[in-house]
């Protein structure tokens, strides 16, 4: 298909989609409407389960099954990336070089790495109370570890985050979400039912299963992102095509 034909086809398709989209939007409740039937019900249900952060309650209690699906996509994507970026037969590994770093940069890393880790744990742990939770805190945790790469070099980062350990941690935390769901089933309720005592509203121990599921997702996201970044950094710094391997031929453009 030529590029021109493709654009023409797109224009026709876009006109059809756009037409139906505008027609559908006109029938939607207006922007900023005061009527949110699902939102109102979610707020009532979250307060009944003593979870102050309604968004966390929706994610890890009311629609926890949906989050299990999202979390499985995340796990699958990490697994796929790890598989795609493994060193191939015609590639060889070499150790990354040690790098010189400015003393101020090193100081920045030494001060900020523990601080960023604490912030990450705080965001995961307070997911049921204040904005945050496993998804956000996990990304903060993963980013925090990579300050070791900025403040030192790749060899230090590899010591700080043993890749194999985080591979296992990713799998275990993904599995623990399902195990907690099954625990709800065993305790006589439904899959992923909030069967734990609900605690006191607006306290660290509140919301029943929500903080635990938050922690599971936090660890999974953190180890998932660490594994992802590790594979990309390995590609850039440690994996090289072997000398005798045939180079890919260039296509004429």
């Amino acid at each position: 298909m030529t590029a021109r034909l493709r654009v023409w086809l797109f224009t026709v398709a876009a006109a059809v989609v756009g037409g139906f989209f505008v027609a559908a939007c006109r029938r939607l409740p207006p922007f900023g409407t005061a009527r949110h039937p699902y939102g109102a019900r979610a707020v009532t249900a979250a307060l009944a389960h003593r979870t102050a952060n309604v968004v966390s309650s929706v994610n890890f209690d009311l629609r926890a099954f949906d989050t299990l699906g999202e979390e499985s996509i995340l796990f699958g994507a990490v697994l796929g990336t790890a598989l795609l970026l493994r060193p191939a037969r015609d590639e060889s590994l070499s150790r990354a070089r040690t790098e010189r770093v400015l003393p101020t940069t090193r100081l920045f890393g030494v001060l900020l790495l523990p601080l960023a880790l604490v912030v990450g744990v705080y965001i995961v742990a307070h997911g049921q109370l204040s904005p945050g939770g496993g998804f956000q805190g996990g990304v903060v945790l993963a980013t925090a570890l990579h300050l070791a790469y900025i403040a030192a070099d790749y060899r230090v980062l590899e010591k700080v985050r043993p890749s194999a350990a985080f591979d296992v941690a990713d799998g275990i935390s993904a599995a623990s979400f399902t195990v907690m769901g099954l625990a709800g089933l065993v305790s006589g309720g439904a899959f992923l039912q909030n069967f734990l005592p609900l605690g006191t509203f607006n306290q660290l121990v509140s919301g029943g299963l929500v903080p635990l599921l938050n922690a599971a997702v936090g660890f999974e996201v953190a180890s998932g992102v660490i594994v992802l970044v590790a594979h990309f950094l390995d590609q850039a710094l440690e994996v090289h095509p072997s000398a005798q391997a045939p180079q890919p031929e260039e296509h004429p453009t």
Partner: peptide, 29 residues
């Protein structure tokens, strides 16, 4: 308050979307 249900949907997808982007970039590599 604004609707928490749609916020929860967007929130999970931001992180999941980032990992799927990483998978596609690995394919590109």
């Amino acid at each position: 308050v604004v609707d928490p249900v749609v916020q929860a949907l967007a929130l999970t997808d931001v992180v999941v979307g980032a990992t799927v982007t990483a998978l596609l970039l690995a394919l590109t590599l």
